[in-house]
Amino acid sequence: MLPILFAEAFNWTNLQQQCITGLTSGALIALIALGYTMVYGIVELINFAHGDLFMLGSCLALTIFTAFGLAQPGAIDSASNVSIVLAIACCLVAVPIFCAGLNRSVDYVVYRPLRTAPRLAPLVSAIGVSFIFMNVGLFWVGPQDVNFPDVIQDRNLLGDDAVLRFTLKNLLVVGVTVPLMIALTVFVKFTSLGKAMRATAQNPTAARLMGINTEFVIGTTFLVGGALAGFGSVVYALYVNTISYQMGFQNGLYAFTAAVLGGIGNIPGAVLGGLVIGLVQALGTAYIGATWTSAIVFAVLIVILVFRPSGLLGARVREKV
């Protein structure tokens, strides 16, 4: 057993391949985790509905593809490249707008009246919203897994005969997530609205005294978080090619884990957390066993938090006296 394990571990191409797979799915997790962490940073709410918002985004993407006539069996082969590119572009515009608007409306209707309520009240409301979203998803796509048209070719970009595989899909995931993360970092760090966000996160009262419209800032945060979930859902649908009304739960759980692992409220932390989880998942599956993957992810999480109680990049909170 052990020699085999060694032989596998030192199979470099295999290890590299697993790293590619792991980092790609990690990037997707990170994209969802960003929405969690931004909302948490500003209103200290674990938004359990975020994963299901992501699921609804995928449902909309599927509906758009159906409208373009790409969802029927055999439609991909006959479809022109123009219509495929058009459909993807349409998704990348419509779905983030839809998710952002939905997230913002939910905040306005459900969470805003609870800003002063005990802290568990918005949490439970978020669970309620997640139930409603799931029910909507159930009506939208039905109880079973649904195929999302596989419009992106699986051609290996490193050459057809290369041992290592890096396909167009991997490129798509990286190509969408990395610029978004950079844009987000720039937005939060260097724009005045971003500055207002950080101020509100630090101390809402002081921010308001400084003339910041905190409600507007919170609303913007929900908009941005929702839009990220929207981008994530389109990329996810194109990458994994399956949609079901339950997919928000598992992905949301991992994203939440990633957010906390990186230090909740911390934007680079969420990205790092997502990548770590993706890697642990892939390597755990490869070298230990697929049934243990989730257990390993959570065990790693517990161990990291025991040694770094505020997450990987979270600032050590000083006790305010």
Binding site: N11, Q18, T21, A286, G289, T291
Partner: peptide, 20 residues
């Protein structure tokens, strides 16, 4: 021989391993 976690959303790394 392996068991999968039926709640996982994709099995790419498992399949990468099997492909070898």
């Amino acid at each position: 021989r392996e068991s999968i976690d039926a709640k996982a959303s994709e099995f790419l790394s498992l399949m990468t391993k099997i492909a070898t």
